[in-house]
Simulated scan of single mutants.
Amino acid sequence: MAKYSEEFKLKVVLEYLQGTLGYPLMAKKYQIGAESQVRRWVRAYKEFGRKGLSVKKKKAIYSVQFKVDVLHFIKQTGASYQETAIQFKLNNPSLIANWNDKFLKEGVEGLQEKAKGRPSMSKKPQATPTQKEMSREEQLERENELLRLEVAYLNKLKAFRENPDAFLEKHKQRLPLNSKKKNSD
């Protein structure tokens, strides 16, 4: 559960925007841990409206490539987490900070989604129907293809670890900095 409700955040932001108190006094008045929290709420409200203050009901899942693009944007532009979150339409700058920490500790593997919880137990081990129907030759071809993919992945990972900047530059996608996306609401 979120520490502050959307209504509470909206009340604080609207009072701040009326101009009676600054960030430190607003934080003190409402017993908010840090004035930077109020600052983030105000900025999110100015950029995204009320949606910027809402707590997500469902956890969004982002691809590894998206996360790398976000981190690359920070490195190239020197933007803050807050500015980057606004650029990429995210309302949680601390999410980007977490990605950055994981990337620095574990590399690209740290950015991959990990299955949480305990795997379910199936009553019977079930082979997929395609494996049963494949001939021995087809199974070997499939295994060879999977091994080729694994080797290619490991080679890219090795190249990235040796020189992350060159790898990111080679594989970066152009970011539409000045284009306006249509809202999908």
Rank of each mutant, 00 (worst) to 15 (best):
residue 25 L to K: 15
residue 25 L to A: 13
residue 26 M to S: 05
residue 27 A to S: 11
residue 27 A to E: 00
residue 27 A to C: 01
residue 28 K to D: 09
residue 29 K to I: 00
residue 29 K to S: 04
residue 29 K to V: 09
residue 29 K to G: 00
residue 31 Q to G: 09
residue 31 Q to C: 12
residue 33 G to P: 13
residue 33 G to A: 15
residue 35 E to M: 11
residue 35 E to Q: 15
residue 35 E to H: 12
residue 36 S to T: 13
residue 39 R to Q: 03
residue 40 R to C: 11
residue 42 V to A: 07
residue 43 R to G: 12
residue 44 A to V: 10
residue 44 A to H: 14
residue 44 A to G: 11
residue 44 A to Q: 15
residue 45 Y to D: 05
residue 45 Y to T: 10
residue 45 Y to L: 07
residue 46 K to E: 14
residue 46 K to N: 10
residue 46 K to I: 09
residue 46 K to L: 12
residue 48 F to T: 12
residue 49 G to F: 07
residue 52 G to E: 07
residue 53 L to K: 06
residue 53 L to I: 11
residue 53 L to W: 02
residue 54 S to R: 15
residue 54 S to Q: 15
residue 54 S to M: 11
residue 55 V to E: 13
residue 56 K to R: 14
residue 57 K to T: 11
residue 57 K to A: 09
residue 58 K to R: 14
residue 58 K to C: 09
residue 59 K to S: 07
residue 59 K to C: 04
residue 60 A to H: 10
residue 60 A to D: 14
residue 61 I to R: 15
residue 61 I to G: 12
residue 61 I to P: 07
residue 63 S to E: 06
residue 63 S to T: 14
residue 64 V to D: 09
residue 66 F to A: 04
residue 66 F to P: 06
residue 66 F to K: 08
residue 67 K to H: 00
residue 67 K to A: 03
residue 67 K to C: 03
residue 68 V to P: 06
residue 68 V to S: 02
residue 70 V to N: 02
residue 70 V to G: 03
residue 71 L to N: 02
residue 73 F to W: 12
residue 73 F to K: 10
residue 74 I to D: 03
residue 74 I to S: 00
residue 75 K to N: 11
residue 75 K to R: 13
residue 76 Q to G: 09
residue 76 Q to A: 12
residue 76 Q to M: 15
residue 80 S to F: 05
residue 81 Y to F: 15
residue 83 E to D: 14
residue 84 T to D: 00
residue 85 A to E: 00
residue 85 A to R: 02
residue 85 A to N: 02
residue 86 I to M: 05
residue 87 Q to Y: 01
residue 87 Q to L: 03
residue 88 F to Y: 03
residue 88 F to D: 01
residue 89 K to Y: 08
residue 90 L to W: 04
residue 90 L to M: 06
residue 90 L to K: 06
residue 91 N to M: 02
residue 91 N to P: 08
residue 92 N to A: 05
residue 93 P to S: 03
residue 94 S to W: 06
residue 94 S to C: 06
residue 94 S to Q: 09
residue 96 I to G: 00
residue 96 I to H: 01
residue 97 A to G: 11
residue 98 N to V: 13
residue 98 N to I: 11
residue 98 N to H: 09
residue 99 W to P: 08
residue 99 W to N: 05
residue 99 W to L: 01
residue 99 W to S: 03
residue 100 N to E: 13
residue 101 D to F: 12
residue 101 D to V: 14
residue 101 D to A: 14
residue 102 K to P: 03
residue 103 F to Q: 06
residue 103 F to P: 02
residue 104 L to D: 04
residue 104 L to F: 08
residue 104 L to R: 14
residue 106 E to A: 00
residue 106 E to R: 09
residue 107 G to P: 01
residue 107 G to S: 05
residue 108 V to Y: 00
residue 108 V to M: 01
residue 108 V to T: 09
residue 109 E to W: 03
residue 110 G to M: 02
residue 110 G to R: 00
residue 111 L to P: 01
residue 111 L to A: 00
residue 111 L to Q: 00
residue 112 Q to E: 12
residue 113 E to R: 10
residue 115 A to H: 11
residue 115 A to K: 15
residue 115 A to T: 14
residue 115 A to C: 10
residue 116 K to W: 07
residue 117 G to T: 02
residue 117 G to P: 04
residue 118 R to M: 08
residue 118 R to H: 08
residue 119 P to L: 08
residue 119 P to E: 05
residue 119 P to Y: 08
residue 119 P to N: 04
